[in-house]
Amino acid sequence: MPLAGLLLDLLEGLCVSAEIFALTLLFALPLGLVVAFGRMSRWWALRQVSRVFVSVMRGTPLMLQLFFFYFGPYYIFGIPLKPSYRFAACIIAFSLNYSAYFAEIYRAGIESIPAGQHEAAKMLGFTRPQTFFRIVLPQVVKRILPPVTNEVITLVKDTSLAFTLSVMEMFTVAKMAASAHTTMLPFVVAGAFYYVFNYLVAWGMERIEKMLSYYR
């Protein structure tokens, strides 16, 4: 098989993988903060809703969730399935799933900030939102970078699960090419691409950690 054609196909797939990756982070990172706030809310009902959400999202397979959000509208509401909805369903499932993991990382980070920081801010007259965004959150970001890096690296590899909805991301492309040409080569090349992708992610996160190492 022509190597150049394979590389081009895989790179095209890689772009879709990167799109899933970027959109998931775009939605899941802020959504995780909302869920974390819910987990720490003063209101019992909100705490319970967030707790159940996190529990279900972490307790069931992402692949099952992908099917649920893709087929759900048809089976539950009778809305006809459109192929164009595949990508959207994929982003919804990934974003909700990852927001649950991010929420728990945020919560742990927020709760690890000593009470003295809140008290000092209160004594200086900061409002609660000012305290959170100026005093607490910057310190939380520094503390949670290592676990967030873990999740982000896992996400790069998890994008291959979009294969189950036949989204044309890199793994789907690799599998099609492998079957068509009865060769392992597409998997090897795709594996190399995933590795390089993650190498760059890890490098970038390490840079950010270094940037924030000016204080303890």
């Binding site: 003295g116 007259g125 900061f126 000012q130 204080y215 303890r216």
Partner: peptide, 29 residues
């Protein structure tokens, strides 16, 4: 706002420089 408190454990804001620790509340509050 009319009273101040100095803590046993300082509770300085570690992510701010010394100067910003002293200016932040003046500016924000």
């Amino acid at each position: 706002l009319r009273i101040g408190l100095v803590f046993q454990n300082f509770n300085l804001f570690p992510h701010f420089s010394v100067l910003r620790n002293v200016t932040e509340a003046q500016r924000v509050v």
